[in-house]
Simulated scan of single mutants.
Amino acid sequence: MSAASHAILPGRGGLFGSLSDVLWRNPRLMLFLMLTPPLLWLGVIYLGSLFALLAQSFFSIDEFSGLIKYEWTLKTYAELLRPANLDIIVRTVSMAVAVTLASAVIAFPIAYYAARYARGKWKALFYLGAMLPLWSSYLVKVYAWKLILAKEGILNWIFAKLHLTPVLEAWLAIPVIGGNSLSVSYTGTFLVFVYVWLPYMILPTQAALERVPESMLEASSDLGGSPVQTFRHVLLPLALPGIIAGSIFTFSLTLGDYIIPQIVGSSRLFIGQAVYAHQGTAGNIPLAAAFTVVPIVIMGFYLWMAKRQGAFDAL
């Protein structure tokens, strides 16, 4: 600090005045003091507890006493390859992929209309419609869908009024995806997942489509490209980062959710339910921690691929 600046801005008296002067003259010190509390919270509370949980996955359960053996081993990870546990992983990943693909298919035309045609109050209405489901309670939405999909629910009533009850019964008779009713089937679980996570796919896709210049679509048409060719070679590649950005949310949230499968669906477990059950009821914390590693590893690879596609630019 030069003598001239001291003359223009004289120091203030008192402890707080001196401290304020020090921070004003040392912006890096002020930045350090501002960032230290949240970084300590993130590092100690969040990452610390996460690493403590992951460390448990390298321990094992004594088969006779049921107590944790604090000896480093990969035995618990080998248990993930058992048919019952592997079935949980495959079921969860399959559901996450199906929900992500369905959300992308449903979200794209909605986002395209909002980006290309909605103006003024209609665009405001679009944002309101996309965001409104996020303002209500998560549990309220899930239990509402439980009632909608039940045998006495409104969806079955609509099928009955349209004389389509045999179609619904034929669908529920299909192995794996069917069940006694939609509320206790994988189809019902899928529908609720898509409804709850759909806004997370619509908004990034719409943001990506907003960035596509109208001139590029017109140039494709002027060069003789059909609407299908324009969509495939121009629009979709440019919108892909936004779709991938949305898929990060839909895929990861489906991968770790345990409440929706617990309320709407069959008795077969998903990864989130397995973690909850082994940590709480069964008391097998090492196996619960090993199950926790699975979505972390999957999402690590997924985020790496998404970054290569430029998806983070559309977040």
Score class of each variant (00 low, 15 high):
82 R>H: 13
46 Y>Q: 14
128 L>S: 09
104 A>T: 12
81 L>W: 09
39 L>S: 09
132 L>Y: 11
133 P>F: 02
90 V>C: 10
127 Y>P: 01
125 L>E: 05
45 I>G: 09
155 L>D: 13
154 I>H: 11
93 V>Q: 07
138 Y>R: 02
104 A>C: 14
65 S>M: 06
139 L>A: 13
112 Y>V: 04
152 E>S: 10
152 E>A: 10
121 K>H: 11
120 G>Q: 03
106 I>Q: 12
98 A>C: 11
75 K>N: 15
55 A>C: 04
94 S>A: 14
99 V>P: 06
112 Y>E: 15
29 L>W: 04
34 M>F: 13
132 L>C: 09
88 I>L: 04
66 G>R: 01
131 M>K: 02
48 G>R: 07
101 L>H: 05
138 Y>P: 01
80 L>P: 01
153 G>E: 06
38 P>W: 03
149 L>M: 08
39 L>Q: 03
160 A>G: 09
97 V>N: 08
54 L>V: 05
57 S>M: 03
116 R>S: 09
56 Q>D: 13
71 E>Q: 14
37 P>M: 06
45 I>N: 14
93 V>D: 06
79 E>P: 00
51 F>K: 11
133 P>K: 04
104 A>R: 01
31 L>S: 15
64 F>C: 03
140 V>D: 01
35 L>N: 14
131 M>I: 15
135 W>L: 14
47 L>I: 13
122 W>F: 10
98 A>S: 13
160 A>N: 13
123 K>W: 07
109 P>L: 09
94 S>V: 05
118 A>I: 02
120 G>M: 02
98 A>P: 00
80 L>R: 05
49 S>P: 05
100 T>H: 03
83 P>W: 01
57 S>H: 02
62 D>G: 05
115 A>N: 06
82 R>T: 15
87 D>Q: 12
139 L>C: 08
37 P>E: 10
68 I>V: 15
142 V>H: 04
56 Q>H: 10
102 A>M: 07
102 A>N: 04
120 G>H: 02
136 S>C: 07
144 A>K: 10
35 L>I: 12
70 Y>K: 09
49 S>D: 15
112 Y>P: 02
136 S>V: 13
138 Y>S: 07
101 L>G: 06
99 V>S: 12
54 L>N: 08
